[in-house]
Design a protein around this nucleic acid. Structure first.
Lengths: 163, 163
DNA sequence: CCCATGACTGTTATATAGTAACGTGGTCCG
DNA sequence: CGGACCACGTTACTATATAACAGTCATGGG
């Protein structure tokens, strides 16, 4: 079993710098196209979130911001996060009170987040079948499902092997 | 369109006292069978949560506890909630930091919580098709999905009508 | 009966997460 | 220039959750 070939979960052993630069470039392009202002702070927060594929907590972001240069306060971080969430560049993991970069096309979209209980790595997928069945179930109960992200907890391949 | 006939969403216009007494009796029975101790405080917290089909926040539970008689502190509430969660008698809604009574059979089970963004009413269902497709998607990515509750946001029939 | 034990609850303090409100500074456009 | 707007700074605060330790209480074994 070769975890390197797992295209979904990206662990620490891959060349992550490519993920980061790609994500930042995509964000630059996306924001430029839409006239959104990816300011210095917002871009820096996005970069911090993209340090890995594990969700990052708001106050950890704050600490990292404050390690270099000028001091910031919580509202600065939360405002940047609001912008990034709104733009669809990051997702909030409700079950962890944490934030993770969105590797798919930015903008509003449905997604399923596979959150590993072992290593906390998050894999994001967008499977039309899930979206379809959720809509269908909703309709059966008179419920209009909103575009959304669904959190699915479990163990990734690597952490299953570790146990 | 007759919302009274909606078996999934239970709004304020149904005879809710039946829900409460049934939930409490089920809990009594379930705990007795398992040797779990549904103490006075735990039962009272469960009763407060069952005041409606909307999620209740921990500190609101605390306020209600404190309105009658002796004063409690946050750990008392959180400990009761831990017990009730463990026993499968309530669910936590991560996206709201709130708790709702579980109307299905207690014990560990998968469920989908349809959370209305309008009235915050929660309907709980357990649809094998959803569970199946989640397992299937997980398997495709080497991911072992845990039994869980999935939160699905949307608008219930009534709130769609209101808009 | 008594006390040892474990489970439950009380109490205090603190950690973590998030927001309100208002002031400041920069930028863009008329 | 000057006003309008947006981003950010700053202070203070609210909301959510837990750590740590002390008391209480039922219960079963000696």
């Amino acid at each position: 079993m070769n975890t390197e070939s797992d295209a979904t979960f990206r662990h620490r052993d891959h060349d992550h710098s490519a993920c980061v630069s790609e994500a930042l470039e995509d964000a630059d392009r996306y924001c430029a196209q839409r006239g959104l202002r990816l300011t210095r702070i917002r871009r820096r927060v996005l970069e911090i979130i993209w340090q890995g594929h594990e969700p990052v907590k708001a106050y950890d972001i704050l600490d990292q911001l404050n390690q270099s240069g000028r001091r910031s306060a919580p509202p600065t971080v939360y405002r940047a996060l609001d912008f990034l969430l709104e733009a669809g560049l990051v997702h909030r993991i409700d079950s962890l009170n944490a934030f993770v970069g969105c590797p798919l096309a930015p903008g509003e979209h449905s997604a399923q987040l596979l959150v590993c209980s072992g290593c906390e790595t998050v894999a994001e997928i967008d499977d039309p079948a899930i979206r379809g069945i959720l809509d269908q179930i909703g309709a059966r109960h008179g419920f209009a499902v909103e575009p959304q992200t669904v959190e699915i907890k479990g163990l990734c391949e690597r952490c299953r092997g570790d146990s």
